[in-house]
Design a protein around this nucleic acid. Sequence first.
RNA 1: GGGCGGAUAGCUCAGGGGUAGAGCGUCGCCCUUACAAGGCGAGGGUCACAGGUUCGAAGCCUGUUCCGCCCACCA
Length: 1013
Amino acid sequence: MNDENRTELAKGYEHREVEARWYPFWKGRGYFHGDERDRSRPAFSIVLPPPNVTGSLHLGHALTATLQDVLVRWKRMSGFNTMWLPGTDHAGIATQMIVEKELKRTEKLSRHDLGREKFLERVWAWKEKYGSRIGEQHQALGAALDWERERFTMDEGLSRAVREVFVRLHEEGLVYREKKLINWCPDCHTALSDLEVEHEEAHAGELWSFAYPLVDPPAGGPSEIVVATTRPETMLGDTAVAVHPEDERYRALVGRKVRHPILGRELPIVADAILVDPKFGTGAVKVTPAHDFNDFEVGKRHALELIGVIGPEGRMTAEAGPLAGQDRFEARKEVKRLLAEAGFDRGAKPHVLPLGRCQRSQTVLEPLLSDQWYVRIEPLARPAIEAVEQGRTRFIPESWTNTYMAWMRNIHDWCISRQLWWGHQIPAWYCPEGHVTVARETPAACSTCGSGALRQDEDVLDTWFSSALWPFSTMGWPRENETLRTWYPTSVMETGHDIIFFWVARMMMMGIHFMGEVPFRTVYLHPMVRDEKGQKMSKTKGNVIDPLVITEQYGADALRFTLAALTAQGRDLKLAKERIEGYRAFANKLWNATRFALMNLEGFEAGAGGAEAATPADRWILARTQRAVNETVGALEAFRFNEAAGTVYQFVWHELCDWYIELAKEALYGDDAGKKGAAQATLVRALSTALRLLHPFMPFVTEELWSVLRTKVRAEDWPDSILASSYPAPGPVDEAAARGFGPVIGIVDAIRNIRGEMNVPFKVVLDDVEIGSLDAEAARTVGEELGRIHRLANVRGARVHAAGVAPARRAASTVAVGAGFELRVGLAGAVDLEAEKARIAKEIDKVAQDLAALERKLANPSFVQRAPPEVVEKDRARADELREKRGKLDAHRVMLSVTEDSLDAKSPRREEPMENQNPQPPTTGEVVMEKLDKAASTVGEASKAAASAVASGFESVVAQAKKAVKKVRRKVAKKKPARKPARKPARKPARKKAAAKKVAKKKPAKKKPAKKK
RNA sequence: GGGCGGAUAGCUCAGGGGUAGAGCGUCGCCCUUACAAGGCGAGGGUCACAGGUUCGAAGCCUGUUCCGCCCACCA
């Protein structure tokens, strides 16, 4: 953009320089803004899960942003009217705690020192200061968010929506206030919902027993009753002892009384079949209705007194008598001491128990009796269950459906009031008479008695209450409007599965209740991001990674691609730096592929009507391109991000770069204008398709490359932003073109393999290559593409036989048998007989193994009868193929032993590279070989025939072949024995040694597959 | 206590009734004029264990052992 007409690229990709430029460009062009009045295109909308306003993004957020951006950019390019709504959450407790902590640290003040109003001013100031960071981070990641629609849960509009919902629910009787036991955090000093309780699975505690003396022991009966508890301090609030009604041990005691050993009051012994398990402990339970959820129910059943002995601070109340004012854990020790002194201690044993802790502060929670507001949830849950049952909303991965259902079907009323200052203050007012007025706007008088002395409820709502409205409150609800009409329900809810209950379920309930329709069609739940050790990232663990740090180091594209590539369904995601490095290299690869194109597109103009796909190679890459498009789009539609990313990666790197670009050089560097133009057109088409496929994953680098490429090829019909171009469309793949090119690839691979195995460096030209055993089509293709084969394998003058003709058998050659072709590479002096024998033996061994397995299978009558015919047919065909291959390889092996017998294998090898050897008159050696060759083809035929007799195994083939060979050998022997053929200079000793070492080294390693553990 | 998921190459993980895959790492060989953040090649696996279903199981079923996670008011 700085230089609009740039058509060249730097040598390597510098993400810092490139990424800085594009976000303002996109945003400035309005590409991220959806138009609610546009009905010409299908709508696609996502609301971003609002991060906590005072936080900063971690990798989980980066994953959220990435996946959603992939969807949004993909849909936008696919012709949808997209809208992705950003915003932040006020995050009640979390934010208040941060600001309180800061206040304490810097000014040594508590919020109470400041007072509510002043404190809230501080929180707002904090929000203004840090809230923008979230936006910056999203921009750095490239998120195509519609910033004009940014919302905050406590802004004007959303606050109105919150009050509206609260009041309506209250009017409908679905919001109520009641005094009951709730989970209380003595540290955060507020009530919590069930969801905010973290259950410590197995806390190592103790089960302590003590005796309650009977006030009026039955004659001849016990004088006390022993109870067990994990919380001795609560005995100060005990108001009964419960036993099982059918427990013989205690039958006589029910209805009698015990005396409280510390406080002196009398407690009834009650029978309760629900609470008491006669097999646990002593079968008698102390009952503390004010501090235990089970006991609370018992209290209701037996009309027991509620005595609160622990206060909001976690200290003992006046009701605790002598222990009043003590911390609850101190009191625990004290109670034990007092009872022991008084002789009531009956021992203790270790006991593991579940323990509820505060999600925020990790403090052990205290069940506390208090007045709180609740949402009657069952009437809201039922329709939300039905919506999923009916498929109006579907979960991906599907397994989350069960989780959602199980929770919804067993849901408890939702405690929504919090004793905090930061949040939506509850729109309820109290008059001195105690009447409650719930209203949308501050009322002037009590709705019951008309009193003007109103005081608003000091509590605020659970932060998730406003979050639950997010999909519609952000779109202007309760006002009817175009935004809602266009984009509600949203298309996808994409978030982490950790907030399925907190958020997803509640949005479902509220959305259905207030909008009459589900808030989203699809819920895609992504995995949790963990660190390299598999630990969940959290601030307390200190293993949080700031996405900006990674973005700075590796580039946003690399991070995004990594996250997408690792997002497989149903598993957590472990992020390792090596992966990011790998994908940074991928961005660089793409950069350089484009750079290559730019350097080779002289004279080419897109839209000039140049011929495309003139050659099999061109048609091949275009077929592969289409296949990649189909697979990528298919994967995206199924939310298989890892597959989409993997497909494009594979295509770009291994097909476009490794193959096509290398293939194209033949035409691009050549003189054939037609072929050159076609190669250019094909390259541009494949590359531009790849850029568009990749854009949702790697927006920055693709935009940069698109702009340069577009300038270079003067493609006026390309939009000047890749984001405005269209996503490649799925379509039929030219399978024939894809398949037809197979032999070319196979042949190049085979020659490269031979080079590797035989230690022939690439720079040594192979000038004796024969290609045969092709079918008609392959013969044509290979003939046509011979130039490319020459270039890719560094071969000169390869001979391609007519269809059906096999390469000749020749000594000092190495062969390869592939699918649909057979190859002979004459290596003259370069053949290391031992190495080649080993190579062939290995190959034969593998073929034999595969074949044996197949034949066993095919010999099984029930397989042939019962397996699908096409499977059987496929296996038969493959068996035939393997047999043929084995025959050919075996013939070659025979050839090798002949060579060994007849020629001096140890003859010195030449020193200079072969490419310096121009064709020259046949040497004596060659004449000899010629003869050998003829005979050998006979051998080849014989062995082939034998091989096709299948099960006979190699030995008979070898025997036959050897016989035939002997004849030849005698003949040859009569001629002058080949003494030092001219074309056989000595081999580099070093190399030979290395090769020998390699073989020697390999053997033992192979036998023992190093099995540890 | 209930539920869900996992165990596949040295590492990180895909796959999922019909020839075991990728990336990284390892080992060779190459600075071949897009890219050494690269190219070419190679090696590497009783798919946790035990049964079962099937012509055929790494995959499906049952059980076992480990490892995660979620839900849960047994003193």
